[in-house]
Design a protein around this nucleic acid. Structure first.
Lengths: 358, 358
DNA sequence: CCGCTGGTGTTTAACGTTAAACCTGCCACT
DNA sequence: AGTGGCAGGTTTAACGTTAAACACCAGCGG
């Protein structure tokens, strides 16, 4: 069967002997068309399988298209496995559903970061999730001049949704210090392209990744306040997954077998770290304290998994607010939205092994 | 700062004293433009923050837009919590990343299913995930005439990606029967809008939902083969979640306290059912056998969760194949792709309590 | 010297909409 | 009777692009 040429406003109009504008109005300005004509138009539209104005044409004319684009640093296939990213997406999708907007997931070409074809998508605005500061995508989005909101990132010219990362990480480290831990290491996900090193806390940390930078600063502040030299604190950078957490434990203990606490920058890292410590005969929290960040549901579920000492942040709310900013608010001026996280004193942190009072 | 009017092919052309076609060619047909001119064009484009042809205009002209749309029956916020749906999305996104296509998630308005505005999105094709047969969206997609592939659904006029649901469910029930179970109940997710009943297996089941229908047929075949009357087998319909599984156990045991096995149509239902059985003092598998369907990672993770007797299907592969069909293959004729699932004999099924040999 | 070919660039005509301005009749108000 | 407003249309001009056809020039083989 040869599919007939698609019907258009024009074809319908000439079929019915009216102007195409009237047909357009039937769809967009019902008040401007008599009820009778409107019904004739819709009836005929149904008959010829016309399903409403062509989205590209409409979008070209109106400059809007009813969709928002979401850009991640990492491949989408990663985002779909990360509980934090998923909660974030859920927040966005909730608003999209309420507003009747489509949600465009924009994959970046990992191999050729300069090729940003997919970024030039039909969207009314962008949500960037924790982009690297120098990523070309963020510059391109700026150039395009569409409303943009960045999440977990500070961009003075754009709206942003942030968490009090620095303060929270300071709180976590202070918590560990209060428990008598002095041999603490930090486990972080990548802070820039090309990562993987173990360095001292006083090393240079680029601010490519806002979140890592802020949390590192929080750690520094806490150690400084306690008078502990940053040079003695190791920071291990690894991929953000349970596996990354496990390998971090091995690498860190090789250098510092006497560690008593690990401050991880995500719950996934922390769950991996807990598992590996236990596997190595270092029960948590008796011999090793482990803290996380995010407050996600553990991969081990409520069933038997350790209740993590962590920072609970509301990723869903972040998504909501970002999407609401694009779809609902007056986007004339950048807004800085801050969503406070809370410290959760769980069961994976305890008095330091060998500390006074033990 | 007042943002200058957006640059266009035309404005760039007139700035440079050439035709807009040449500028267009610089982007789309590099061979048709001298290297020198091309560089002048790109240099100027950068200067005026032109980031390439306007997607809507291009799409209007070419009829393509480099994106595929994914439609779920349920709200997106549900899909983002369901392991099966997530694996499916991951499969799709992998292909999108490889092909440089955008991924449009199309939310359906749950309250007003007749309002399908979001469906008229700028996409080159649709992937429908397990739609209800009579859902207006599927009709509208047809009307629009775009390439469409349905997953877990049989639509003669469209490409489809299916699993051997019927055969697998027959296998599961046969497995239970072989273990001596005769007092078996079935737990399913909704098979149509407006659900929630407990009915006998020989009741009328609409084929609104292809998957439920096929699996029910598989169960019937297995019971028939064993000479067990369908009228004595209960089917409990509930929402597809752990909570749904838990409530199903309560509702079923109220009617049939002597049940010894539950065949669930999803792993999520099964995990909930296992939890609730244990909570009610019916250890699995000693007093109650429970089977699932999907082969997902348990919400309880590898840590301590029961290894489910289930059917492992490859949702990721389903997503891959569906997306590949739209983005890579010759879509001239509908393709029927079938992805075989496999039976997994886990630890949640055992010889029936009270059966011979016990 | 002719016609052919390849490399560059131009002209023109869509693609399917919507917004703005305008027209026409009819009714109501002063 | 004149004026204003409204309901229900119509006309016209974009929106920013790409595809097709055509023009021009150089080089080249015959």
């Amino acid at each position: 069967m040869v599919r007939a040429k698609r019907a258009t406003l024009k074809s319908i109009a000439s079929d019915l002997g009216v102007t195409h504008t009237s047909v357009s109005n039937a769809y967009n300005n019902p008040a401007k068309v008599s009820k009778e004509l409107r019904e004739r138009i819709f009836a005929h539209a149904r008959a010829v399988h016309y399903d409403g104005p062509h989205p590209a044409a409409r979008s070209l004319r109106t400059g809007r298209c009813g969709a928002i684009g979401v850009v991640f640093n990492d491949p989408l296939s990663y985002a779909f496995t990360d509980p934090h990213d998923l909660a974030f997406l859920r927040g966005i999708s909730t608003v999209c559903e309420e507003e009747g907007a489509n949600l465009v997931l924009i994959p970046l070409n990992a191999r050729e970061p300069e090729r940003l074809d997919t970024l030039t998508a039909m969207v009314d605005g962008y949500i960037f999730n924790a982009p690297y500061r120098s990523h070309p995508a963020i510059r391109k989005a700026l150039a395009r001049g569409l409303p943009t909101v960045v999440v977990d990132f500070d961009a003075p010219d754009h709206a942003s949704v942030l968490t009090n990362d620095r303060e929270m990480m300071r709180t976590v480290v202070a918590h560990l210090l209060a428990l008598g831990h002095t041999k603490v290491a930090i486990v972080t996900f990548p802070h820039a392209e090309g990562w993987g090193e173990i360095v001292a806390l006083d090393a240079d940390f680029s601010d490519e990744n806002y979140v890592v930078h802020e949390r590192v600063m929080g750690c520094r502040e806490a150690f400084d306040a306690a008078g502990i030299a940053q040079g003695g604190i190791l920071v291990c950078e690894t991929m953000n997954s349970e596996e990354g957490g496990r390998s971090a434990v091995d690498r860190l203990l090789e250098r510092r077998p006497d560690l008593t606490a690990l401050a991880c920058f995500s719950d996934r890292l922390a769950f991996g770290a807990v598992a590996q410590c236990e596997a190595r005969g270092l029960p948590v929290p008796n011999r090793m304290s482990v803290t996380g960040f995010d407050g996600i549901d553990p991969p081990g579920g409520r069933a038997g998994a350790p209740e993590l000492t962590t920072v609970r942040q509301n990723a869903l709310e972040k998504g909501r607010r970002a999407a609401e900013f694009l779809l609902r608010e007056d986007r004339a001026r950048p807004a800085q939205i801050s969503i406070a996280a809370t410290f959760v004193n769980g069961r994976t942190s305890a008095t330091a092994w060998g500390a006074s009072g033990r």
